[in-house]
Design a protein around this nucleic acid. Structure first.
Length: 267
DNA sequence: AGGTATGTTAATTG
DNA sequence: GCAATTAACATACC
């Protein structure tokens, strides 16, 4: 699967990972754990190996961009993918590739690999999900909020895009889906939060849900997202699919940001 | 060759 | 005290 790592993972990508884990790994017992690159670990390799070997993957849980695989002893295996992490499911006799940092050999000659090309991700055995979320100050999952909660979490200060990407406010949106949500809501990425009115928040909330749910339905394949979205045209030399304007491109909230200067006017 | 990358965190600046 | 900006992480890609 040559393109499995090209999506830098945001909420929809993690949701698809979770579904793959449920289909191919949950219910299986871990026969062996091999740490091939310690840089993705937060704890000694022996802690991970001893804690996971012999345990069964009981069920999984996604929270924002984090995936937790619960073990049958109550602990959980946290996976965060950074910018270049992905999962690989294979038979145990397949040749390992360089990016396969941590390998779980499962029942029936199945294998689950945590892969990362830049080793910016993280894999960790945790006591409870809540401990991890608290320690890393991760806010509620973006899809768990209602319109009122969404507005409360975003708060009143700062710029809109930075707030959408702030995982302590709400968890799951990254650069691409923040831009897409703002595009569909017709809001400029630098709009100050205190300039937004009630109906702006409601529209933004609905657009965020629509973006995330549709992206999941399209299995996270960004070029195949609806043609009138920003994401499939997110290149410097392309134009807004709705009005034909050249994109505005600049750093906002520290990341490269695309928006339509006509449909997302400054205010 | 050098700039860039969709994430996160800490340090720095204003 | 806060928000915004920069640097760092490590590697592949154009």
């Amino acid at each position: 699967m040559p393109d499995a790592y090209t999506n830098m993972p945001e909420l929809p990508d993690l949701e698809l990972d979770k579904r793959q884990v449920d289909a191919h790994a949950v219910g299986r017992t871990v026969r062996a754990v091999t740490v091939r690159d310690k840089r993705v670990l937060e704890q000694p390799a022996s802690t991970l190996e001893r804690g996971v070997k012999g345990r069964r993957f009981a069920h999984s849980e996604r929270h924002g961009k984090n995936l937790f695989i619960h073990l049958d002893d109550g602990h959980a295996l946290l996976m965060h993918f950074g910018m270049t992490g992905y999962l690989k499911f294979a038979k145990s006799d397949e040749t390992l590739q360089k990016s396969e940092a941590v390998v779980f050999e499962l029942d029936e000659d199945r294998r689950l690999s945590y892969c990362s090309r830049r080793m910016l991700g993280r894999i960790e055995l945790v006591e409870t999900v809540q401990d991890y979320l608290d320690a890393h100050r991760i806010g509620p999952d973006a899809l768990s909020l209602d319109a009122r909660g969404f507005r409360e979490r975003l708060g009143q200060r700062g710029g809109l895009k930075a707030a959408l990407m702030d995982q302590s406010k709400l968890a799951g949106l990254g650069n691409v889906y923040s831009d897409e949500t703002l595009f569909q809501a017709g809001l400029h990425p630098r709009t100050p939060l205190n300039a937004l009115k009630e109906d702006d928040f409601v529209r933004l909330f609905r657009c965020m849900r629509e973006v995330l749910e549709t992206a999941i339905e399209h299995e996270g394949k960004r070029p195949e997202l609806p043609a009138d979205w920003l994401t499939p045209h997110r290149h410097e030399d392309e134009r807004c699919p709705r009005c034909g304007s050249p994109w505005s491109v600049a750093q906002v909230g520290g990341r490269t940001t695309f928006w339509c200067p006509k449909d997302q006017p400054e205010r």
